[in-house]
Amino acid sequence: MQEIQKARLPQLWEYLAKKAPLYLPQQEDGVINFAPWQEGARVKLESLNTVLPPKSIVFPQWETYLHFTQKARELKLTPTKEPEGSYILFGVRPCDVAGITVLDRVFLQDPVDVFYESRRRCTIISLACNEPDISCFCSAFGLEPGFAPAADIMLWDGDKFLLWQSLTEKGETLTHSLTDLLEVPTPAETESVQCLRETAATVQEQKWGLDGVKERAKDMFNAPIWDSLYRRCLGCGICTYLCPTCHCFDIGDFSRGERGERFRCWDSCMYKDFTLMASGENPRPTQKERVRQRFMHKLSYFPAQHGLYGCVGCGRCVRKCPVNIDITQVIKEAGGSISCA
């Protein structure tokens, strides 16, 4: 284990940014999102969740993957170059790291999504949560606010310094290149990590028991909860777009005259045109079916297909839904138990 003094972080960022594009949480106009570091960046490490999850970096909201030109009867297709994958994501919270591993299940299984795979070559430096928010519930899914097993490097906030532990070979290599900036912590500081991990886990007051939830969720297709829950839904896409695991996309074209480009972009199962077919038929005709789909996908379909829940408990949808539609209420309905510490 090593550590870096917080006062030296700007030096670290400057150094890292020279090696590879460096994305970290920054504030602009009051909004904190992952953005490329540059001189004078307003880095906000202490904020818990960024508005958009780092999903927006590994799986951007839209990207062009093909250029085309059409002259007379000749159609020419030029695939876009694979995106750069050697960037660094710094300060990713453990729930968001887990969110990326959920995306991996979708995009890295056969047929592998080459754009995602390329972007996924990035290095992830995770920052443990010392004090999770009241709306955080990552522990419900067996995750730990104080540790992200899928990160390359793990950091813990020790007030004046960040404790630094590499978890992978990639993390180790990067760590080795930083000998000028990293220091050896005192044994007491090293020990404090355990304490930070435990405290973070206890601060998350609600203790969830999810035994059997995914099995029971399977039988919830006709449950009465959907009849009441959907009524207040505005049909906006906040919950899906802010979700670190939602990954549905659509494909569209920009074209002008003889040339154009084909892009893919996030899409939302909350929108009525999401399942609208060319014939005009819509298998999810009302908001009830759409709301049900989102929760069933997270709690039943995704676990059935991939063996893990499609929710990491980051709490973004809980915090940002304009009408407080709350996935934890659905989990309780599916038999999830909850007790306060």
């Binding site: 602009e28 106009d29 909004v31 999102n33 958009l52 909201q61 505005l234 049909g235 906006c236 896409g237 906040i238 777009y241 996030w266 939302s268 929108y271 304009p322």
Partner: peptide, 16 residues
């Protein structure tokens, strides 16, 4: 431009 560049087109503004 800076404001609109952040838009994620969730349509919450319209729907509400």
């Amino acid at each position: 431009q800076r404001q609109f560049s952040r838009c994620i087109r969730c349509f919450a503004c319209r729907n509400v």
